[in-house]
Amino acid sequence: MEQLIQKLKQEIIEVLNLEDIKPDDIDANAPLFGTEGLGLDSIDALELIVLMEKNYGIRLQDPNQGKEIFKSISVMADYISKNRTK
């Protein structure tokens, strides 16, 4: 799981173009969205949906599902490990 969390941090920095942030700056349990934590928004959520499909073969059809799954990197990693098809 720790390995997946590290990998996810790297992928998120890359896909969301978070230039000034390093993997170690991200608290895996901090909220990804909103003013605390990374401060991501709805468009980032859409990019994360694409990331999950591309890299882990998980297809979400309803953007609202993302609200639960993208709470934090840990929650996301947990969901991926249970649902990944690749």
């Binding site: 468009i43 859409l46 990019e47 694409v50 499909e53 591309k54």
Partner: peptide, 10 residues
């Protein structure tokens, strides 16, 4: 046509 990136389109 799969997995197009929303930011690019926007």
């Amino acid at each position: 046509e799969d997995q197009m990136m929303p930011t690019r389109f926007m």
